[in-house]
Design a protein around this nucleic acid. Sequence first.
DNA 1: CAAGGTTATGTTAGCGCTATCATTCGCGGG
DNA 2: CCCGCGAATGATAGCGCTAACATAACCTTG
Lengths: 354, 354
Amino acid sequence: MTTRGGDRPATPAVKTRKPRSSRTGRATMADVAERVGISAITVSRAFKRPELVAPELRQRILDTAQSMGYVPNQAASALASARSMTVAVLIPSMTNMVFVETLAGIHDMLLPRGYRALIGVTHYSPVEEERLIRTYLQFQPDGILLTGTDHTEIARTYLSALSSPTVHMMELLDDPDSLSVGCSQEEGGRLMTTHLLERGYRRIGFVAVQLDPRTLARLDGYRHALEEAGLYDEKRVWRLPDPSSIHLGAAMIDRLMAENSDCDAVFFCNDDLAQGALFQCQRRGIRVPDQLAVAGFNDLPASAWTTPTLTTVATPRYAIGRHAAAMLLDLMDGKEPPQRRLDLGLTFIAREST
Amino acid sequence: MTTRGGDRPATPAVKTRKPRSSRTGRATMADVAERVGISAITVSRAFKRPELVAPELRQRILDTAQSMGYVPNQAASALASARSMTVAVLIPSMTNMVFVETLAGIHDMLLPRGYRALIGVTHYSPVEEERLIRTYLQFQPDGILLTGTDHTEIARTYLSALSSPTVHMMELLDDPDSLSVGCSQEEGGRLMTTHLLERGYRRIGFVAVQLDPRTLARLDGYRHALEEAGLYDEKRVWRLPDPSSIHLGAAMIDRLMAENSDCDAVFFCNDDLAQGALFQCQRRGIRVPDQLAVAGFNDLPASAWTTPTLTTVATPRYAIGRHAAAMLLDLMDGKEPPQRRLDLGLTFIAREST
DNA sequence: CAAGGTTATGTTAGCGCTATCATTCGCGGG
DNA sequence: CCCGCGAATGATAGCGCTAACATAACCTTG
């Protein structure tokens, strides 16, 4: 047998204190160690560095731990090792599927490596983001994933004062000191607008909601494309601070009608708006795309099924999450990631609505 | 002035060790205390029990902490106080909006009280749930929120061995020892089926997917209602393990047609299926509700906008999250919640599709 | 103005774990 | 057969914070 202390009397019997269990009633590492007849550090190793413990002893430790219902205390581990095995993830919204899919990518990358995500929702507000960053710094996260590049000054200070690596998702940063994974929203706006121009539409409207930086970048792409064609007209741009929804998209169709807009096509900054628009067109008997072409952005699941199906731009949301997490893992390992700025591109999807 | 030690020399100068900052390079409570010229515990109080510290001193502490970039270390706090201020939340899916809204309710309730949610996704698998429970127990959560009542034996053992309170969401438990907040899925299934019967449909089909306990409960409600009417027929029930999606709903319409089903109405266990079915009916020229009535469940946002609009049952998802979190807060405060089983009811929504 | 209470702050001793540096044992080479 | 070395395990000393119990100053009150 490998165990040296194995033939000691089963219970040393002379120990001064034997609380058996912690304050919380849960077994501790020391309890397991005592039961096995070894020291606590070996129990620690059996969990964290199994290759350092003789296989048979390790098995005995794990079995004993299991039978005692021992669960390592993450707080104590984090305190002693200065590694929280936690990554703070801040996204603007949870009701927007876009970010939920990104989260899934992050999870799938982090969990197998033993990291946990601490998820915060900023509601598109840099101020709320700052508050969340402050809160989450208490957890001494080993890494941080942020959405977008629009942060408060104080938030920037927090982050730069911090040793933990940070990766920005969705938008791409030009600053060579920052890390980012995403796609060019501006290019997305341009792609779609160019497509509409090619289809012969000349009075193309744009509906921007939420007015977050990504929406505005799409708007920029739209504007540039139209300016190049000499067709940009501010009166065909609607800017609304409301969150994106089917309802709002439907309402926009009503508004266009009410305002007697001359648009022959409308590019909505998000698919759910465009879907709402399609529903309302159907209801009001507006023929799409003949009377009015409708375009969206993000390729949400329903967009392939509406009548008519929706022309849109697919964004690599899941991949962005995965790659951002992978980049962070590299950084947390002290490695330099292959690229500090990763453009995952966009896929234009032409369907019936244009 | 309130500060007693305030007129000491600014730096005591004789202290034996002055690490200034922890291993991680971050300022610690002791650093702040030294700078202010007080003891660490007072800094602790300034943050956690501000009413115990003289207002002016408190302000000075907060200012100094801010200027030093001090952030409390949550791991140390959790270890010392045996309170993690963390609630583990397990949901089956993130892509299903139902649970995302529940999460929002949980967040809105917990955050203002200083608790953080640790979110885990079980993918509808009790085994994965068990794994997540094990993982999250390491964080010594002060409370646990679970979805449904379908847990593995080992998971039950973990939970019962635990002192932390647990609340089950979505389904209602009859066991008086357990706490639950939700609504009767069975009743939902019954409500809808009764409605369809009242509308005169006699050959009502049911499409069950995912086959999680909630879906099966709805199926039960459907079956009981039809059995009472003497109209239940197993051949009109489809059971598929796949996750719910628009695509699958559309495919089911194709399948019904291919199988020459005699259904005059189909009750889909989830709205996205029903939406897919509506889309496909429109595409294939099946008149809804004349040729075929379509019903859904959950009242997702798009259901009010499809053509025709979808008859469905609204579930109080957000409220379930809020109330479950509220119940947990009571329990964590050592209070007994007003009810151990909270039925938040359902809302039947009749629309055009039936 | 002493006894007792209240308020504001301090001292001490851990929480449960891991970094770090021993220590012990077995083994192969000179 | 001794030295050196690697493998397996242990002893010790914190990580940064807070519970629990002091202590000190002030405030009542009769």
